[in-house]
Nucleic acid binder design. Structure first.
Ligand code: MN
Ligand code: MN
Ligand code: MN
Ligand code: MN
Lengths: 149, 149
DNA sequence: CTTGAAATGTAGCCAAGGCTACATCTTCTA
DNA sequence: TAGAAGATGTAGCCTTGGCTACATTTCAAG
């Protein structure tokens, strides 16, 4: 594939940019579940002092074995700790992540509302959108909300 | 667990709303890959008259067997057709989906730009966000853009 | 018309994230 | 304080979406 070969037609230019956009979107997605778990665990502890697998499962709309398996992944990744039959707690790293995720969630919902999305849809869509909002975009959202109030 | 038992504390209220929000976000996600493939195939055909697995793989940043496997899922779901060694084409359903996905992608990018997100980040984040934008939200985005011009 | 490089396809592996069925532990209550 | 009910945990299955290694087909040069 030498560069001397004259392209017969448009010669699709490989576009590494596009590929990396897709790749990044996939990567972002893979962190989404962890983020939702950590945020929810933090909420549950805030509400009732503890986060139990059954409650987590119910709030996420998932079976309890699924929740337990994901919780063990959280532990493996250093975001949570839990002793058998006792309840789930967040590590320092987990708390930090939860706080960032919670803040981002709020901003995303507020932005959707600010541009005129009905509350119902805003809450719904934010749950997915939030995981694809980069820091850069988050800052821009914040500025927009500031400007508008 | 009879309803006569007096709750000792807050009594977490099951919240089917929240569970269904998470469920819907998961469902939306599962369609994302199909959407990106269909949009890309349509683009490739528009650009060069054909969509070949290698090009698809390269543009998505994925190995060619991965692309081929996903293409066969597209076929199974009635969105594409392809004969071995020939190239991929969209069915009527596939074309329709591609058109909707393309339009939504544009609106999402435009909205991000309109609220002040830098172009680079807007393109990047839109690739993930688009798959979580409901029809309701899309309409709101459209109105906001209209209003702003 | 041959032939070899590039494209395409197949096989088989892995991890994540779902599920159901079943086993074990805890806790509330009678 | 014994049971039973509910919570927790384990085993094993499935699909999706990745990958590498290898096999086969096409097609353009020569
Ligand atoms: Mn979420
Ligand atoms: Mn959230
Ligand atoms: Mn996309
Ligand atoms: Mn897109």
């Amino acid at each position: 594939m030498s560069e001397s070969s004259p392209p017969k037609r448009a010669e699709l230019p490989a576009e590494p940019t596009q590929a990396s956009r897709f790749s990044k979107a996939r990567t972002a997605q893979s962190g989404a579940l962890m983020e939702d778990y950590v945020e929810l665990i933090s909420d549950l502890i805030g509400e009732g002092g503890e986060a139990r697998p059954t409650d987590i499962a119910r709030r996420l709309g998932v079976s309890h074995p699924t929740a337990i398996k994901t919780i063990s992944r959280l532990k493996r990744e250093g975001l949570a700790v839990a002793k058998p039959y006792r309840g789930v707690f967040l590590t320092e790293a987990g708390e930090n992540l939860a706080e960032r995720v919670r803040a981002r969630h709020r901003v995303v919902v507020d932005l959707l509302l600010a541009v005129g999305v009905p509350a119902e849809a805003a809450e719904q869509d934010a749950e997915g959108i939030e995981h694809h909002v980069s820091d850069t975009t988050l800052v821009a959202f914040g500025r927009f909300l500031q400007r508008g109030r």
